[in-house]
Every structure is written in C-alpha cells, then in structure tokens.
C-alpha cells in the first residue's frame, strides 16, 4: 500500500483515528505522518517511528515529481496505463504492466522489498514450467563445461536436448 498523502512512498504508518466518534483510517509514509503531525498526538507516550524509510526505502530518486515524464514513461500498457499514471495512482493497471514497465519497476521493487525476484509459493499450474526452466538452466551450464573441454559430440547432443525442452516450454507458455 502506498502513502495516501504523497502516493510515492510505501505507507509504513497505519493510523486509526477516532474523532467525534468517527473512525478514520490513514495510511501514511513516515515523512508525511510527521509533516501532518499525526505522530504528535501520542502525547506523553511520544511514539517516534524510526527513520526506517530514509536510505533503505528511499523512493525519492525514482519518483521525482518535478521531472517531466521521459518517453519510456509515456509508453502505455495494453490496459491503458502509462508509467506516469502509475506514479500518480500508486497502483498498476493489470498483470501485463509488470512486463510493460519492467525496467522502471525493478528498481522500485528493490527499494520496497530489497529484492526483485520471487522465491515463495508457485501455483501448481506453473510448477511444470518452472522445473523445465530449471532443467534447461542446468543443461546450459553443462553445455558450457563440455564446450570448454572441447567435447563437441557431447555438446551437439546437449544442444539438441536443450532445443527440445525449449520447444516444450514454449508450448507450455502458450497453453
């Protein structure tokens, strides 16, 4: 979830405030929470959220509002969203957006999560594909080794095997 105020940094301060018996929820980044004085209401308890976002999650460089959008940022995904729209909305439009804006999104993911690659659960439908990819990867490694040992007959064999698996993988992707 992005900060409601600036829509640029991830919200790390989630506040439920009760004013005149009306409950309102706020999701702010630490900076905006401080600017709005929301953290000051804690009175004598004085909760100071640490400066977690600065440095580690510093999105400022990537979300420089002042800078005019570059040509890449004006490119639109099939869902109609441009990267510039994403900056304003704080949300992507569809699953293809991750591919369309891949280059711009990876640095943001790195800043938010410290990583860019998924290591968790995989849907069952993708398990077959994933194991094919891992097989191809290990065969490619083996291929490099046999080539460096100048075992050309073995290399040709491996190449055929890799092509076969790649074909199979292509089928899976389309299916």
């Amino acid at each position: 979830m992005m900060c409601e105020e600036c829509k640029k940094r991830p919200a790390s301060v989630h506040l439920t405030k009760i004013v005149n018996n009306q409950k309102t929820e706020m999701h702010l980044c630490e900076q905006c929470a401080q600017e709005r004085g929301e953290l000051g209401f804690m009175g004598n308890i004085q909760i100071n959220f640490p400066n977690l976002l600065s440095g580690f999650f510093d999105l400022d460089q990537h979300f420089n509002v002042e800078a005019p959008p570059t040509k890449e940022e004006q490119e639109r995904c099939s869902c109609g969203l441009s990267f510039n729209d994403f900056r304003e909305l704080g949300q992507l439009g569809c699953s293809s957006c991750y591919r369309t804006f891949g280059q711009q999104i990876d640095p943001i993911l790195r800043r938010i999560h410290g990583h860019t690659r998924h290591t968790g659960k995989v849907p069952r439908k993708h398990e077959g594909k994933l194991s094919l990819q891992r097989k191809i990867q290990s065969l490619r490694q083996e291929l490099n080794e046999v080539v460096s040992r100048e075992e050309y007959e073995k290399a040709a064999q491996l190449r055929d095997e890799i092509h076969g698996l790649e074909k199979e993988l292509g089928g899976e992707q389309n299916g």
């Binding site: 979830m1 704080g90 992507l92 993911l109 690659r117 659960k121 993708h126």
Partner: peptide, 10 residues
Amino acid sequence: EEHGYLTACP
C-alpha cells in the same frame, strides 16, 4: 516466475 503473484500495488 520473476515477480510472483502480481498485485495492483507493488
């Protein structure tokens, strides 16, 4: 494979 489950908010 790369980004896992794709969500509206990164």
